[in-house]
Design a protein around this nucleic acid. Sequence first.
DNA 1: AATATGAGCGCAAACGCTTGCGCAACCACG
DNA 2: CGTGGTTGCGCAAGCGTTTGCGCTCATATT
Lengths: 339, 339
Amino acid sequence: MTVSIIDVAHAAGVSASTVSRALRGRPGVSDQVREQITAVAASLGYTASRSASSLASGRTFTIGVVVPYVGRWFFSTVLDAAEQVFSKAGYDVLLYNLGSPEARKRFFTKLPLRKRVDAVLSLLIPEEEEVTALRSLGVPLTSIVGGPLPGFTVVGIDDRAGAESAVRHLVNLGHRRIGMISGSSGPLHWTTPVDRRQAYLDVLADSGIEHDPALEVDGDYTVKGGERAMTRLLAASRPPTAVFAQSDEMAMGALRALRRHRLRAPDDVSVIGFDDHELADVLGLTTIAQPVAGQGAEAAELLLRQLSEPEAEPPGQVRMPIHLVLRETTAPPNPRRPQ
Amino acid sequence: MTVSIIDVAHAAGVSASTVSRALRGRPGVSDQVREQITAVAASLGYTASRSASSLASGRTFTIGVVVPYVGRWFFSTVLDAAEQVFSKAGYDVLLYNLGSPEARKRFFTKLPLRKRVDAVLSLLIPEEEEVTALRSLGVPLTSIVGGPLPGFTVVGIDDRAGAESAVRHLVNLGHRRIGMISGSSGPLHWTTPVDRRQAYLDVLADSGIEHDPALEVDGDYTVKGGERAMTRLLAASRPPTAVFAQSDEMAMGALRALRRHRLRAPDDVSVIGFDDHELADVLGLTTIAQPVAGQGAEAAELLLRQLSEPEAEPPGQVRMPIHLVLRETTAPPNPRRPQ
DNA sequence: AATATGAGCGCAAACGCTTGCGCAACCACG
DNA sequence: CGTGGTTGCGCAAGCGTTTGCGCTCATATT
């Protein structure tokens, strides 16, 4: 058997309650006794049983983090940053990876988080009924990415502005046939693809460029999808001279498609992405940078603040800055290439 | 107040113990009553409190996963796969991200896992005293990457064989000046860089190529490090015609360095990596593929097996297959380029 | 028909902590 | 020196489960 609180109490010649108070920095213990207890506890290698203490207190000191795909760069980066903030504050993180539909359904019906966490950080955009499931947990909720969501604090970026500067950049370079590799839209609250698309349309309209539906292809937010999408675009009767990909991973797929067709960016086609993926720099990909780790850290801190100040009204929405990163995959249209 | 087991018991007209047994599929309950209880529990939306049940039973149904950097592709991919296996089996995962030295020290001194998990999967190679700390938890331990470690089940690949086929591939193409971008060696048990280096030396010797220490540069297992390393290699008095990078990320850095110097792979320098990073394909990087997600899943399953069959002797070590993936960054040395 | 058998269920004691309350002992004050 | 207010600590009642044991019937056995 491992050492319990009463072992420490006996060894220190006090009661269990005093040990409890002493070790957690609660008032009602003299400095002298507290020191004594701390020393004894350390020498015995005592650690309080989390299950026991959370059963007794109701606090779990655990944060639930739910993620669609931990394996993807964006999410793992956010998770990385968030975990650091949580653990520094003494919270553990319980991870749920909801990639497959079954896992997702299982999670939301069984709700393993119930009574297990003090708060939850969601990196996925919940469907309508999932929202109510999460709310029923009765703990602070924070979400990354996605539109405003009542009951949630959501941190994100200004997708419209980001997409606008991307497309405007292409327009300013002189492009007129500008394709877009878009992301499929998912849950209702998942406004990102919608916003980015709207910005694309707005800039086109604003620049007097007619919108050609053939230049808009779904890339599924994956490298492979981006590759397929670019292949489709190249097969169009009048292919684009520039392409705005709604994510860097799709942009990378697009670059791959270009290479496969013995074409090059930006010589033949300009490509701009979105995210500033860690490898965007390696590929020389021009993109819109968003603070990915920054959003994770910010979200985590907001959540902690809600835990420490339950009274304070949490911010409904927080927007982080973005900026255009010029690299080597965008340039003016090539005059030698027929439009 | 949320619904507890006695609420269910009352509603079903039975005792709490019967509810407990019924819901967990324990014997001693008639099918009829069990059904009844299941129905009532569902209608009340009852979920057992994890803290209470693990306090009472000692089982936590939680696995601790400790990771050096969740943000890095390799680890997040392993984690992704492992989490899926765990959650399918009804286990939750408690994640510890130990990137910074402080976080790592904090973790191993406080050992927040104590009494909280049924097993731990370690994706980092523990130092000597960390090993004993983990062992003191008294639960099954599994580790990915690294040499055999008493008390641990470790799953990994044959680093020697992998590195050998990489270097041999370059030799077979006709290269004789072959550089290596290596990873700094860390903890004692972290045999990967050592093994890969040894294989490099072996193949060179075996091929009658003299080893030039100037062609061996540390790349720190990062993209930036790889870029720096390649830059150093290019500055050598007699630069290599081919480079073996001990990880794809370093290889990508190397490719970037080449581009910066207006050089190209494989025309000017051949580059081969190790891992088969998800974006290796995008970059056309020749590499040694290892089943990353596969290792995560395998490790998770081994751990679960140890939990379900505590008696069975766990395998000390499991090796997963590797293979060479030919892409576009390796070719015979360019005859136009002076050696 | 009487007894042994076992299946189905309830009782109550843990599990290891937290916390409201009570009780000394102490201080300062008038 | 008595009173009121602190301060420091112990008591004991939970927190919501699990589980060994015992009891009660029905069923099988002689």
